[in-house]
Simulated scan of single mutants.
Amino acid sequence: MKKPMVDAARGAARVRDLLVTGVSRHAIGVAVDRGELIRVRKGWVAARDADPLLIAAARDGVILTCVTQATRRGLWDVGLADPHVAAPPHAGHIAASGHVHWEKPAVPRVPGTLEDPIENVLAIVARCQPRDTALSIWNSALHRGLVDLDMLRRLPLTESGRALIDEATPFSDSGLESVVVPRLRWLDLPLRRQTWIAGHRVDLLIGECLVLQIDGGHHVGMQRTRDIEHDARVMLLGYHVIRVGYDQVMNRWAEVQDVILRAVAQGLHRRG
């Protein structure tokens, strides 16, 4: 089967870049006439089944970045509907919808690219998002091995990015974890992430035996059943389990904190 000039994975491409690879203008025109490609704007074409976000970025002359690109890379999704895109600092009028970032990138962008590299994504997230949200995305990138702290330290980051380097860790598997731990440090109790208990890791161990389990969007169906079974095994070992979800942590934190404080007040974080 003939490989498409612009496949869905690439989304869209500049005509000049296709010409460099040996594709002729005539072939591009034929592909457009056959409906295999669509003309996005002057000098740009896209696969008909390409990601609408990539097509929009090509149309508007911007680059997907910040929380939008973080979500596309499989990092923690903060649930923002409006796209975050980047434009050159000295670009003219940009008609893109959503939030436009104009700052100079930490890593130079290849001409014609529509997606920011992970280093730029994290640098912009650090400036754009609240600290706990940004830390969640950074930890998610580190945990997945998309970037490492030593490399981030060598980048020309802003003060907000430098502050996150001191807090970020590759050992956090949950964005919600990264939100919760900074909010509980004032308790002045041991807070151990990803501790192995009863054959599986728990999200957070507070003190000696108070377990906080944090459910993301994937905790449904069989996963939910396995979580409940594990909770029972953990409690049989003498631990106390508090299980909370995304909405509770992000939108009703005062309620979650109140439950934890009442558990601590009763000494449920201590053995004996």
Rank of each mutant, 00 (worst) to 15 (best):
K2Q: 14
K3A: 07
K3T: 14
P4Q: 10
D7N: 15
D7F: 03
R10D: 04
G11L: 02
R14W: 11
R14T: 08
V15W: 00
R16F: 01
L18C: 10
L19S: 12
V20H: 09
R25S: 15
V32M: 13
D33T: 14
R34Y: 02
L37V: 09
R39A: 13
V40M: 04
W44I: 12
V45D: 01
A46C: 08
A46S: 11
A47V: 09
R48D: 00
A50S: 08
D51E: 09
D51C: 06
L54E: 01
A57I: 07
A57G: 03
A57W: 04
R59M: 08
R59C: 09
D60P: 06
L64D: 03
T65V: 12
C66H: 13
C66S: 04
T68V: 09
Q69K: 10
Q69Y: 05
A70D: 05
T71Y: 06
G74M: 07
G74N: 00
G74P: 01
D77P: 03
L80C: 03
A81I: 15
P83C: 02
A87R: 11
H93C: 07
G98L: 06
H99T: 14
V100E: 05
H101D: 11
H101L: 06
K104G: 05
V107K: 02
P108W: 06
R109T: 12
P111D: 12
T113D: 11
L114V: 12
P117S: 13
I118W: 07
I118V: 15
N120K: 00
L122Q: 06
L122H: 06
A123C: 04
V125Y: 02
Q129R: 14
P130H: 08
T133R: 10
S136I: 01
W138S: 05
S140E: 05
S140K: 05
S140M: 07
A141M: 06
R144P: 01
D148L: 00
D150A: 15
M151R: 14
L152V: 10
L152P: 00
R153W: 08
R153D: 10
T158M: 10
R162P: 10
L164Q: 00
A168K: 04
L176E: 02
E177R: 02
S178H: 04
V179S: 02
V181D: 04
R183I: 04
L184F: 01
L184W: 02
R185E: 14
R185D: 02
L191N: 07
R192M: 14
R193N: 11
I197Y: 03
G199Y: 09
H200K: 14
R201D: 09
V202R: 05
G207R: 01
E208N: 13
E208Q: 14
I214E: 04
G217T: 12
H219C: 11
Q223G: 15
R224D: 05
D227R: 05
A232P: 03
R233P: 01
R233S: 10
V234S: 09
V234M: 03
L237H: 05
Y239P: 07
I242W: 01
R243S: 11
G245R: 09
Y246G: 00
Q248H: 00
Q248F: 02
W253E: 08
W253F: 09
A254S: 13
A254W: 12
E255G: 13
Q257D: 11
D258K: 14
V259D: 12
A263M: 12
Q266A: 11
Q266G: 10
G267K: 01
L268T: 03
H269P: 07
H269V: 06
R271P: 01
R271S: 10
R271F: 13
G272H: 13
